[in-house]
Structure formats: structure tokens, C-alpha cells
Write a protein that binds this DNA or RNA. Structure first.
Length: 113
DNA sequence: CGCCTGACGTTGC
DNA sequence: AGCAACGCCAGGC
């Protein structure tokens, strides 16, 4: 219950704080939530959050930098397409320079700084 | 009420 | 280094 709102709320905030041209992973968000072992829950939460325009879920990918959730995107624009608009090089559903474009949720404070 | 699935990650082999 | 199995937690059937 509260856990759901807490998880959802935190994921929501983190994803919204993801800077453009940057991508993060479910595990990184989960780790920030304190549920590092529940990376799946992040995807689940995002599934609920992606329905909101303020939630750029397309910037969240798996540990391999692969756009695993693009099949869940009902929009005409696919994740790779949107990421491409963000100057993020994506090829075959895989983010190029993923290690370079990787953004950690812990950097939120730094971004605000 | 119990089992399976799911936008993942880590550890073991 | 690559592949397989297990673990998480909640939702759906």
C-alpha cells in the first residue's frame, strides 16, 4: 500500500529528474529506493508511471542498456526514436555509449546543485 | 487462497 | 567470458 506509493513516488521523482540525453537503469533506481534486489518492481512502477507525460520512461533501460520496455510503448514513437531525439545514439534497441550516457539517480542532488 | 508472470539484477558454474 | 538458475515484490488469474 504505502510501499506502492512510496516506490511509485520515488521512481516517479527520479525519472522526472533524469536530465535529457541521459539514461538510467532499473537497478540504479531500485538501489536508490533501497530495493536494489527488486529491480523488477522499478519496471512495474514505471509501467504505472509511464502513463504520465512527466515520466520519460524511455530514458530508463536495463543493465545492458537494452530497451526492453519498448514493446510496452503504445505511442507511435518508439523508445529508440525518442532517445534519438535526445541525441542518444540507439541501435537495435541498444543504447550506444551507454556507459557514457548512464546517469545515476544519486546525481539528482548534483543536478540541483 | 495459491501459482505464474513480469520493463531486472546478481551470483554460481 | 558466456550461460543458467535464483531471488525480489507485487499484480493478475
Amino acid at each position: 500500500m504505502n510501499t506502492r506509493l512510496d516506490f511509485f513516488d520515488t521512481v516517479c521523482k527520479i525519472v522526472k529528474h533524469i536530465p535529457p540525453g541521459r539514461v538510467t537503469t532499473y537497478g540504479a533506481v531500485a538501489h536508490c529506493l533501497g530495493a536494489k534486489g527488486s529491480a523488477r518492481m522499478v519496471g512495474w512502477a514505471l509501467n504505472q508511471a509511464m502513463h504520465r507525460p512527466d515520466i520519460p520512461a524511455h530514458r530508463v533501460v536495463n543493465r545492458h542498456g537494452l530497451l526492453t520496455g519498448r514493446h510496452h510503448f503504445v505511442g507511435a514513437l518508439s523508445m529508440e526514436q525518442r532517445l534519438a531525439e535526445e541525441n542518444v545514439q540507439v541501435h537495435n534497441n541498444q543504447v550506444q555509449e551507454f556507459d557514457q550516457l548512464f546517469w545515476d539517480p544519486a546525481q539528482i542532488g548534483e543536478q540541483l546543485e
